[in-house]
Simulated scan of single mutants.
Amino acid sequence: MTGSPTSGAPLRLPFDLPRLGIGTAPLGGLFQEVTEREAAATLEAAARAGIRYFDTAPRYGHGRAEERLGRLLAPAGIDGPVISTKTGWLLRPGADGAPGEVVTDWTEAGIRASLESSLERLGRSSVDILYLHDPDDYPEEVRRTAYPAVRRLREEGLVRAIGFGMNHSGPLAAYVAEFDVDVVLVAGRFSLLDHDALETLLPLCARTGTAVVVGGVFNTGLLADPSPDAMFNYRPVPARELARARRCGEICAGFGVPLSAAAIQFPFLHPAVTSVVVGCRSAAEVTSNAAAYRFPVPEQLWVRLAEEGFVPEGLVAG
Protein backbone atom coordinates (compact mmCIF):
# COMPACT_ATOMS: atom_id res chain seq x y z
CA MET A 1 0.00 0.00 0.00
CA THR A 2 2.53 2.59 -1.10
CA GLY A 3 2.54 4.97 -3.97
CA SER A 4 3.58 8.33 -5.33
CA PRO A 5 2.24 10.86 -7.81
CA THR A 6 2.47 9.86 -11.44
CA SER A 7 3.24 13.38 -12.63
CA GLY A 8 4.86 16.58 -11.40
CA ALA A 9 8.00 17.01 -9.34
CA PRO A 10 9.58 14.08 -7.45
CA LEU A 11 8.28 13.70 -3.91
CA ARG A 12 10.19 15.52 -1.18
CA LEU A 13 9.11 12.88 1.34
CA PRO A 14 12.20 10.78 2.17
CA PHE A 15 10.29 7.52 2.66
CA ASP A 16 7.29 5.66 1.26
CA LEU A 17 4.08 6.60 3.03
CA PRO A 18 1.42 3.86 3.13
CA ARG A 19 -1.57 4.68 0.97
CA LEU A 20 -4.13 4.00 3.70
CA GLY A 21 -3.75 5.16 7.27
CA ILE A 22 -5.83 5.53 10.41
CA GLY A 23 -6.62 8.85 12.01
CA THR A 24 -6.67 8.45 15.77
CA ALA A 25 -8.94 11.28 16.92
CA PRO A 26 -11.67 8.69 17.66
CA LEU A 27 -9.24 6.75 19.86
CA GLY A 28 -8.92 9.93 21.88
CA GLY A 29 -12.68 10.02 22.43
CA LEU A 30 -13.88 12.31 19.63
CA PHE A 31 -17.72 12.41 19.76
CA GLN A 32 -17.95 9.36 22.04
CA GLU A 33 -15.81 7.43 24.49
CA VAL A 34 -13.69 4.49 23.30
CA THR A 35 -12.64 1.96 25.93
CA GLU A 36 -9.12 0.60 26.25
CA ARG A 37 -10.36 -2.79 25.02
CA GLU A 38 -12.03 -1.21 21.98
CA ALA A 39 -8.87 0.77 21.20
CA ALA A 40 -6.76 -2.39 21.41
CA ALA A 41 -9.18 -4.26 19.13
CA THR A 42 -9.06 -1.38 16.65
CA LEU A 43 -5.29 -1.59 16.37
CA GLU A 44 -5.36 -5.38 16.18
CA ALA A 45 -7.76 -5.08 13.23
CA ALA A 46 -5.37 -2.60 11.63
CA ALA A 47 -2.58 -5.16 11.95
CA ARG A 48 -4.73 -7.81 10.27
CA ALA A 49 -5.57 -5.38 7.47
CA GLY A 50 -1.90 -4.54 6.89
CA ILE A 51 -2.32 -0.89 7.93
CA ARG A 52 0.89 0.67 9.25
CA TYR A 53 0.31 4.43 9.09
CA PHE A 54 -1.22 6.21 12.09
CA ASP A 55 -1.89 9.93 12.36
CA THR A 56 -2.29 11.42 15.82
CA ALA A 57 -1.95 14.67 17.79
CA PRO A 58 -1.66 15.87 21.38
CA ARG A 59 -5.10 17.48 21.06
CA TYR A 60 -6.78 14.14 20.38
CA GLY A 61 -8.24 13.35 23.77
CA HIS A 62 -5.73 15.56 25.60
CA GLY A 63 -2.91 13.12 24.83
CA ARG A 64 -4.97 9.93 25.13
CA ALA A 65 -4.69 8.97 21.46
CA GLU A 66 -0.89 9.23 21.57
CA GLU A 67 -0.73 7.30 24.85
CA ARG A 68 -2.85 4.51 23.43
CA LEU A 69 -0.69 4.22 20.35
CA GLY A 70 2.36 4.06 22.58
CA ARG A 71 0.88 1.27 24.70
CA LEU A 72 -1.04 -0.75 22.14
CA LEU A 73 0.76 -0.73 18.78
CA ALA A 74 3.35 -3.37 19.67
CA PRO A 75 0.91 -5.74 21.45
CA ALA A 76 -1.37 -5.45 18.40
CA GLY A 77 1.44 -6.90 16.27
CA ILE A 78 2.12 -3.79 14.18
CA ASP A 79 5.78 -3.87 13.23
CA GLY A 80 7.52 -0.71 12.04
CA PRO A 81 4.56 1.69 12.18
CA VAL A 82 4.69 5.02 10.37
CA ILE A 83 3.51 7.72 12.77
CA SER A 84 2.67 11.36 12.25
CA THR A 85 1.86 13.73 15.08
CA LYS A 86 1.39 17.45 15.42
CA THR A 87 2.69 20.48 17.29
CA GLY A 88 1.87 24.11 18.00
CA TRP A 89 -0.39 23.43 20.97
CA LEU A 90 0.60 22.49 24.53
CA LEU A 91 -1.44 20.47 26.99
CA ARG A 92 -1.94 21.99 30.43
CA PRO A 93 -3.12 19.68 33.21
CA GLY A 94 -6.28 20.59 35.06
CA ALA A 95 -6.48 21.01 38.81
CA ASP A 96 -7.91 18.28 41.04
CA GLY A 97 -8.68 15.97 38.15
CA ALA A 98 -10.52 18.58 36.11
CA PRO A 99 -10.10 18.49 32.32
CA GLY A 100 -6.94 20.24 31.23
CA GLU A 101 -6.68 23.02 28.71
CA VAL A 102 -4.93 23.25 25.37
CA VAL A 103 -2.99 26.43 24.59
CA THR A 104 -1.21 27.60 21.49
CA ASP A 105 2.56 27.92 21.65
CA TRP A 106 4.45 28.58 18.43
CA THR A 107 7.77 29.43 20.06
CA GLU A 108 10.75 27.16 19.50
CA ALA A 109 10.64 26.13 23.16
CA GLY A 110 6.95 25.34 22.85
CA ILE A 111 7.40 23.36 19.65
CA ARG A 112 10.17 21.29 21.24
CA ALA A 113 8.24 20.78 24.46
CA SER A 114 5.22 19.59 22.48
CA LEU A 115 7.25 17.08 20.50
CA GLU A 116 9.09 15.85 23.59
CA SER A 117 5.82 15.19 25.39
CA SER A 118 4.43 13.44 22.31
CA LEU A 119 7.50 11.21 22.08
CA GLU A 120 7.11 10.32 25.74
CA ARG A 121 3.46 9.37 25.28
CA LEU A 122 4.25 7.42 22.11
CA GLY A 123 7.24 5.67 23.66
CA ARG A 124 9.45 6.63 20.74
CA SER A 125 12.70 8.50 20.18
CA SER A 126 11.46 10.07 16.92
CA VAL A 127 8.42 10.28 14.66
CA ASP A 128 8.16 10.07 10.91
CA ILE A 129 6.13 13.24 10.30
CA LEU A 130 5.58 16.34 12.41
CA TYR A 131 2.80 18.68 11.29
CA LEU A 132 2.24 22.22 12.49
CA HIS A 133 -1.36 21.85 13.62
CA ASP A 134 -4.00 24.36 12.46
CA PRO A 135 -1.79 27.49 12.27
CA ASP A 136 -4.44 29.30 10.19
CA ASP A 137 -4.38 32.49 12.24
CA TYR A 138 -0.67 32.52 13.10
CA PRO A 139 1.31 33.22 9.91
CA GLU A 140 3.76 35.58 11.63
CA GLU A 141 4.42 33.13 14.46
CA VAL A 142 4.95 30.35 11.92
CA ARG A 143 7.35 32.53 9.96
CA ARG A 144 9.36 33.75 12.93
CA THR A 145 9.63 30.70 15.17
CA ALA A 146 7.44 27.67 14.46
CA TYR A 147 8.64 26.69 11.00
CA PRO A 148 12.34 27.28 11.81
CA ALA A 149 11.85 25.12 14.91
CA VAL A 150 10.38 22.12 13.06
CA ARG A 151 13.02 22.47 10.36
CA ARG A 152 15.71 22.19 13.04
CA LEU A 153 13.97 19.17 14.53
CA ARG A 154 14.15 17.56 11.09
CA GLU A 155 17.85 18.42 10.81
CA GLU A 156 18.45 16.85 14.23
CA GLY A 157 16.73 13.62 13.21
CA LEU A 158 13.91 13.84 15.74
CA VAL A 159 11.45 13.86 12.83
CA ARG A 160 11.94 12.58 9.30
CA ALA A 161 9.56 14.96 7.54
CA ILE A 162 7.74 18.20 8.33
CA GLY A 163 4.63 19.93 7.11
CA PHE A 164 1.29 21.45 8.00
CA GLY A 165 -2.00 19.84 8.99
CA MET A 166 -5.09 22.00 8.44
CA ASN A 167 -8.79 22.02 7.58
CA HIS A 168 -8.57 24.95 5.16
CA SER A 169 -6.80 24.53 1.86
CA GLY A 170 -6.23 28.21 1.04
CA PRO A 171 -3.98 29.01 4.01
CA LEU A 172 -2.36 25.60 3.61
CA ALA A 173 -1.45 26.40 0.02
CA ALA A 174 0.05 29.71 1.14
CA TYR A 175 2.33 27.88 3.57
CA VAL A 176 3.39 25.38 0.90
CA ALA A 177 4.23 28.25 -1.43
CA GLU A 178 6.39 29.97 1.19
CA PHE A 179 8.16 27.13 3.00
CA ASP A 180 10.15 23.98 2.28
CA VAL A 181 7.41 21.45 3.04
CA ASP A 182 7.72 17.68 2.75
CA VAL A 183 4.07 16.78 3.29
CA VAL A 184 0.70 18.32 4.13
CA LEU A 185 -2.45 16.91 5.68
CA VAL A 186 -5.66 18.50 4.45
CA ALA A 187 -8.89 17.43 6.13
CA GLY A 188 -12.36 17.61 4.62
CA ARG A 189 -11.42 19.71 1.61
CA PHE A 190 -10.97 17.05 -1.05
CA SER A 191 -13.94 14.73 -0.99
CA LEU A 192 -16.86 13.78 -3.21
CA LEU A 193 -18.73 16.71 -1.65
CA ASP A 194 -15.94 19.29 -1.34
CA HIS A 195 -13.35 20.03 -4.02
CA ASP A 196 -11.83 23.15 -2.47
CA ALA A 197 -8.29 21.74 -2.34
CA LEU A 198 -8.30 21.36 -6.12
CA GLU A 199 -8.27 25.10 -6.69
CA THR A 200 -4.76 25.87 -5.48
CA LEU A 201 -3.37 23.34 -3.02
CA LEU A 202 -3.21 20.16 -5.09
CA PRO A 203 -1.75 21.70 -8.27
CA LEU A 204 0.84 23.52 -6.16
CA CYS A 205 1.83 20.34 -4.32
CA ALA A 206 2.15 18.49 -7.62
CA ARG A 207 4.57 21.16 -8.84
CA THR A 208 6.62 21.28 -5.65
CA GLY A 209 6.70 17.53 -4.94
CA THR A 210 4.93 18.01 -1.62
CA ALA A 211 3.16 14.81 -0.58
CA VAL A 212 -0.53 15.24 0.20
CA VAL A 213 -2.35 13.23 2.84
CA VAL A 214 -6.12 13.61 2.68
CA GLY A 215 -8.25 13.24 5.78
CA GLY A 216 -11.96 13.74 6.31
CA VAL A 217 -12.97 11.84 3.18
CA PHE A 218 -16.36 11.12 4.76
CA ASN A 219 -16.82 14.79 5.75
CA THR A 220 -17.19 13.76 9.42
CA GLY A 221 -19.40 10.79 8.66
CA LEU A 222 -21.93 11.90 6.08
CA LEU A 223 -20.38 9.95 3.22
CA ALA A 224 -20.10 6.85 5.41
CA ASP A 225 -23.77 6.94 6.41
CA PRO A 226 -25.89 9.62 4.68
CA SER A 227 -28.64 9.84 7.29
CA PRO A 228 -30.30 12.86 8.95
CA ASP A 229 -28.37 12.07 12.14
CA ALA A 230 -25.00 12.21 10.38
CA MET A 231 -22.46 14.95 10.93
CA PHE A 232 -21.10 17.12 8.13
CA ASN A 233 -17.80 18.86 8.80
CA TYR A 234 -18.31 18.55 12.58
CA ARG A 235 -21.85 19.99 12.51
CA PRO A 236 -25.37 18.63 12.00
CA VAL A 237 -25.85 17.93 8.31
CA PRO A 238 -27.68 20.58 6.25
CA ALA A 239 -30.54 19.30 4.11
CA ARG A 240 -28.76 20.20 0.86
CA GLU A 241 -25.64 18.23 1.73
CA LEU A 242 -27.70 15.26 2.92
CA ALA A 243 -29.51 15.21 -0.42
CA ARG A 244 -26.22 15.42 -2.32
CA ALA A 245 -24.70 12.58 -0.32
CA ARG A 246 -27.75 10.40 -0.88
CA ARG A 247 -27.69 11.12 -4.61
CA CYS A 248 -24.01 10.23 -4.73
CA GLY A 249 -24.81 6.97 -2.93
CA GLU A 250 -27.57 6.17 -5.43
CA ILE A 251 -25.18 6.57 -8.33
CA CYS A 252 -22.60 4.33 -6.67
CA ALA A 253 -25.24 1.71 -5.88
CA GLY A 254 -26.18 1.63 -9.55
CA PHE A 255 -22.65 0.37 -10.24
CA GLY A 256 -22.65 -2.04 -7.30
CA VAL A 257 -20.09 0.07 -5.41
CA PRO A 258 -20.49 1.11 -1.76
CA LEU A 259 -20.49 4.86 -1.24
CA SER A 260 -17.70 4.45 1.30
CA ALA A 261 -15.47 2.82 -1.32
CA ALA A 262 -15.92 5.72 -3.72
CA ALA A 263 -15.33 8.21 -0.88
CA ILE A 264 -12.07 6.60 0.26
CA GLN A 265 -10.69 6.09 -3.24
CA PHE A 266 -11.80 9.42 -4.74
CA PRO A 267 -8.76 11.47 -3.55
CA PHE A 268 -6.37 9.16 -5.41
CA LEU A 269 -7.79 10.43 -8.70
CA HIS A 270 -5.46 13.39 -8.24
CA PRO A 271 -1.78 12.53 -8.78
CA ALA A 272 -0.58 14.74 -5.90
CA VAL A 273 -2.41 12.63 -3.32
CA THR A 274 -0.13 10.10 -1.65
CA SER A 275 -2.26 8.81 1.22
CA VAL A 276 -5.70 8.86 2.80
CA VAL A 277 -6.32 8.62 6.54
CA VAL A 278 -9.69 7.59 7.94
CA GLY A 279 -10.79 7.86 11.53
CA CYS A 280 -11.65 4.52 13.12
CA ARG A 281 -13.06 3.89 16.59
CA SER A 282 -13.61 0.11 16.36
CA ALA A 283 -12.30 -3.05 14.78
CA ALA A 284 -15.42 -3.19 12.61
CA GLU A 285 -14.72 0.27 11.20
CA VAL A 286 -11.13 -0.67 10.40
CA THR A 287 -12.23 -3.82 8.59
CA SER A 288 -14.97 -1.97 6.71
CA ASN A 289 -12.70 0.90 5.64
CA ALA A 290 -9.90 -1.43 4.55
CA ALA A 291 -12.41 -3.36 2.42
CA ALA A 292 -13.73 -0.11 0.95
CA TYR A 293 -10.19 0.96 0.06
CA ARG A 294 -9.68 -2.29 -1.86
CA PHE A 295 -13.14 -2.49 -3.47
CA PRO A 296 -12.94 -2.44 -7.30
CA VAL A 297 -14.31 0.85 -8.62
CA PRO A 298 -14.93 0.92 -12.38
CA GLU A 299 -13.79 3.91 -14.39
CA GLN A 300 -17.36 4.31 -15.63
CA LEU A 301 -18.50 5.18 -12.12
CA TRP A 302 -16.02 8.05 -11.87
CA VAL A 303 -17.25 9.32 -15.24
CA ARG A 304 -20.86 9.16 -14.07
CA LEU A 305 -20.04 10.93 -10.82
CA ALA A 306 -18.22 13.61 -12.80
CA GLU A 307 -21.34 14.17 -14.89
CA GLU A 308 -23.22 15.12 -11.71
CA GLY A 309 -20.45 17.21 -10.21
CA PHE A 310 -19.16 14.85 -7.53
CA VAL A 311 -15.83 14.42 -9.34
CA PRO A 312 -14.10 17.49 -10.77
CA GLU A 313 -13.69 17.72 -14.52
CA GLY A 314 -10.28 16.68 -15.76
CA LEU A 315 -9.64 13.94 -13.19
CA VAL A 316 -11.28 11.22 -15.28
CA ALA A 317 -11.46 10.53 -18.99
CA GLY A 318 -14.89 11.35 -20.34
Rank of each mutant, 00 (worst) to 15 (best):
P238N: 13
T200N: 02
G318R: 14
H270L: 03
R240F: 12
L17A: 06
L11E: 06
D194A: 00
T104K: 12
P93F: 10
V297N: 04
G123S: 07
R235W: 09
T56P: 11
L132K: 07
V34E: 07
A306N: 11
G80V: 04
A49K: 14
S84V: 08
T6R: 14
I162S: 03
R68K: 13
L17M: 11
F255T: 09
T210Q: 00
D128W: 07
G221E: 04
R92D: 06
D16N: 08
G254E: 04
V217G: 07
R121N: 12
A283I: 01
Q265C: 08
S118D: 07
T145E: 15
A317T: 10
I111M: 08
G110K: 14
T42Y: 09
G157S: 14
D134H: 03
L242H: 00
E101I: 02
W106F: 15
G23P: 12
V303P: 02
A243N: 11
P93H: 14
L204R: 06
V316S: 12
G21H: 10
D55W: 10
L198Q: 10
V183K: 01
G188A: 07
G97I: 13
V276C: 01
C252W: 05
R92W: 11
E285V: 08
R92G: 11
A211H: 08
V278D: 08
L193H: 03
A109P: 09
W106T: 00
A263T: 07
G70A: 06
L242G: 03
S275W: 04
L73Q: 09
V186A: 09
G3I: 00
T210P: 04
A146N: 02
R64D: 13
V181P: 03
R154E: 14
G88V: 07
V212N: 05
